[in-house]
Design a binder for these strands. Structure first.
Lengths: 329, 329
DNA sequence: ATGAAAGCGCTAACAT
DNA sequence: ATGTTAGCGCTTTCAT
């Protein structure tokens, strides 16, 4: 069982330096005979080079990582695809780490990733915001995606959309359609929530009152949407519009509404956020605010890799959202 | 900017061996003073150890990988959670690699992972079956999950459910409910498809004919379900039951059916497979065959890690499925 | 055209 | 209680 380059070299009757050169294509000065001999042995022995050793020597791995908070939310896989496609163009592989919205796992992931395991990291932090200052002050380049950092941590790249504005637009649409008893259901914490701020701004602008009681906060998942509606409906039986922090929440909310015999959109209108691929398959098809997830991935990867390869500065990039009207409004 | 252990050692006035001991908790013989001094410096300098170097020396990384074919299918994230939870108990981190049902990416992933990047791999192969013999003959332990390998490749672990039997049961249920014009929509290739075989077996057992024309094969995604129904309906306007290779397909199929004005389950009954968390949120709630995805992840991780840690043999483990009747049948 | 040698940053056995 | 040392498997410069 052959394992190392040294073994290959011994079998081929040459030095490991020569083997290395052949395997890396730096073989302009290697005779055809030697090259073939080496390649043959490599092939036969099923040798694969130890990338750990290689990484140690070269100080890079050609791998980038995407650290995300919830792999079960279809929004993130869409970003993954964008990152993957772009990475591949540059010969980078992608690994993804799920933190399950758990700060400890987030720290762990960063610990092993930033210790030279990968050349760069794309990151969406969990909703349990905690100080990550220390963790982000590593020496691998990082680009933040989706959920922004308020305190402009230095040296981070960011690609994002204007969430607040998107929610103003979404809420306004519901208002235009005649809703007067709007509720807001989302994940995260109320006071540091862009989405909530957009909701309030729109309400205020329309001369309506936005009170905290018309709000339910949980996770960014279907259960939150479901129990959110159940709770809210108990307090406000005449809800006629709901705006959700993401599509998963909207899907859960629709189910709860339908279970209560409420018709969408006749009795209550509902709008989501993200535009995951399943939204159009709902009944009724969900109206939502489209985030260009795939493009976010592409842009993030491109920025990161340009930094890794050519030291180009990491910057802030804003992408555009789009209101998609389907049948739930 | 401090970077290496040597730097820490210099600052602390000791050797890097001492630093290493402290950082690894092998410090029974280190004086409290030295320990504290070192820890302080590590803290202040933001030092993180180079896990590449460590991995090279120790010949392990305490990382396992899950290589999966489609990160956008919610079935896999559920497995991820099982793997994660179990891995964590043993101090292993998990990275996931998406192959997008693409053989080239599959090979690439294995190439860098098996070259000592990770201590073990959990793997669901893509539907483009190709010979992976060479790739699976690496020296890192592998456990296959979900989609089985026919040719019992030696030395691989497997955790699976009896798909064929599950589809017999599902199909039979539809038959019992009175369906006589069943169609089958799935991903992959017809002749090497367990799911299809289960479908046929049930039909034959009931004295019905299973013909290839009542079948549509594509990917394991919603689009396949949608266009599958559109195509099939063109040929067989009187379809009264559809059995799907997974829930995503079923969701797409439901939409197509509903768009045609067909009522579920009155006009046509439909059954899925996997029981992804969204299925119960569909309208009507999707009846499906539950795969214990989380447990599959747990079992796979446990088997893999036991092998890594104690050399326990990789084996075959069969888990149980369960027919879940909701409102689509 | 090929090889010798140094060293990437860390660990662990073996001194002291 | 701490340090010395010898690598882990690879790449790369510099000789030859």
């Amino acid at each position: 069982m052959v394992v190392t380059m040294k073994d290959i070299a011994r079998l081929a009757g040459c030095s490991s330096a020569t083997v290395s050169k052949v395997l890396n294509g730096a073989d302009q000065h290697i005779s055809q005979a030697t090259r073939e001999r080496i390649l043959k042995i490599v092939e036969d022995s099923g040798y694969v080079r130890n990338s750990i050793a290689r990484g140690l020597k070269k100080k890079n791995t050609n791998i980038i990582a995407f650290v995300l908070p919830d792999i079960a939310n279809p929004f993130f896989p869409e970003i993954v695809k964008g990152i993957e496609d772009e990475s591949r163009r540059f010969g980078f592989a992608l690994i993804v780490c799920n933190t399950d919205n758990n700060t400890t796992m987030e720290r762990n992931a960063f610990k092993f990733l930033s210790s030279k395991m990968v050349d760069g990291i794309i990151f969406t932090h969990s909703i349990q915001s905690s100080d990550l200052e220390d963790i982000l002050t590593t020496h691998v380049p990082i680009v933040i995606v989706d959920r922004l950092f308020k305190n402009e941590t230095k040296g981070l790249g960011q690609v994002y959309i204007d969430t607040r504005e998107a929610f103003i637009e979404g809420t306004t649409k519901l208002l235009e359609k005649g809703c007067r008893n709007l509720v807001f259901i989302s994940g995260g914490v109320l006071h540091e929530n862009d989405r909530y701020q957009g909701f309030c701004t729109a309400l205020t602008k329309a001369g309506l009152d936005s009170c905290k009681e018309m709000t339910y906060m949980g996770q960014y998942d279907v259960e939150t949407g479901y129990v959110g509606i159940e709770n809210l409906l108990r307090l406000y039986p005449d809800i006629d519009g709901v705006i959700c922090g993401n599509d998963l929440i909207a899907i859960g909310a629709m189910k709860a509404l339908q279970n209560r015999g409420l018709r969408i959109p006749q009795d209550v209108k509902i709008i989501g956020f993200d535009d995951i691929y399943l939204s159009q398959y709902m009944l009724p098809a969900l109206s939502t605010i489209h985030q260009p997830a795939y493009e976010i991935g592409v842009h993030a990867a491109r920025m990161l890799i340009h930094n890794i390869l050519h030291g180009e500065a990491l910057k802030q990039e804003k992408l555009e959202y789009q209101l998609i009207m389907r049948d739930s409004v």
